[in-house]
């Protein structure tokens, strides 16, 4: 198998007395869609936040393309080519769609004028934002000058996804991307994920929705109690198995991928 794009080794993160990550591991290979599933409090979101630099792990290693990295800020992981759609979407409600897509990386006007006036290039950003939105095939957003708070939940999600897709160079991470979406919009996002895969971009997707996970994922990593309980593929195991491992009813043998009851 090819070398992993992203490797996480033995990550530990505690919040006071709460242990969110208890030696979490993860490998992401080029061009794959890796789903992370787990019960509430299994440390899925914390794992993501540690990878993107939104949180700092207490110990453990994060390795990208063979080199160990340590992100202290979201900006740093972005520069390394990792884009994330957080569960909370991380949008500014009173700003418009364009402003949200370019939030934190606004384009300034070129030349001496741009240097001196520090004026943003609004028309360029507007044009690009329109391009990103329409390339997603999500047409429900008609006006990119609309404030994000006037959009529906699904449309907001689309904005967040468009932002991640537009700027991602290496890895895309989606935390519950379909949680607030309707059926039609969900399938659009799923198609988008398959699309990304065909572009060779590896994707990590966190989801509660088993049918969706089984539809798009190449491999499924099951998180339990802050660490990895096992990795399965949609071909070898079914949803029932995954849920059983997730809840601790069954134990997955790492050697031969067989399921055993917990003794």
């Amino acid at each position: 198998m090819a070398k992993p794009v992203l490797e996480v080794k033995n990550l530990i993160k505690t919040y006071g007395r709460v242990i969110a990550l208890d030696g979490a591991d993860l490998e992401l290979y080029p061009g794959e869609v890796l789903a992370i599933v787990g019960d509430n409090g299994a440390g899925k979101s914390t794992l993501i936040k540690c990878i993107t630099g939104a949180e700092k792990a207490d110990s453990g290693k994060i390795i990208i393309d063979g080199a160990e990295v340590s992100f202290n800020k979201v900006q740093e992981s972005r520069l390394a080519g990792i884009e994330t759609v957080y569960q909370s979407l991380a949008v500014a409600p009173s700003l418009d769609v364009t402003a949200n897509i370019f939030l934190g990386r606004e384009i300034r006007r070129g030349g001496l004028f741009g240097q001196l006036s520090r004026m943003m290039d609004s028309s360029l950003m507007k044009k690009d934002a329109q391009k990103y939105i329409s390339s997603l095939g999500i047409e429900t957003i008609q006006n990119i000058n609309q404030a994000v708070e006037t959009l529906s939940g699904g449309q907001r999600q689309a904005v967040a996804v468009a932002r991640a897709v537009a700027f991602s160079q290496k890895i895309i991470i989606l935390d519950e991307p379909t949680a607030s979406l309707g059926v039609r919009e969900s399938s659009q996002v799923l198609n988008l994920i398959k699309n990304l895969q065909s572009r060779g971009l590896p994707v990590i997707i966190i989801s509660h929705n088993m049918p969706q996970v089984f539809e798009v994922a190449n491999r499924i990593q099951i998180q339990r109690l802050g660490k990895r309980a096992g990795i399965v593929t949609p071909k070898t195991h079914d949803m029932k198995d995954v849920v059983a491992v997730m809840t601790g009813a069954l134990k997955l043998e790492l050697k031969d991928q067989t399921l055993n009851s917990v003794t």
Partner: peptide
């Protein structure tokens, strides 16, 4: 609007 969202969007 939302300091946490701003932080996650890469704003200091």
């Amino acid at each position: 609007n939302d300091p946490e969202a701003a932080r996650l969007s890469g704003i200091s």
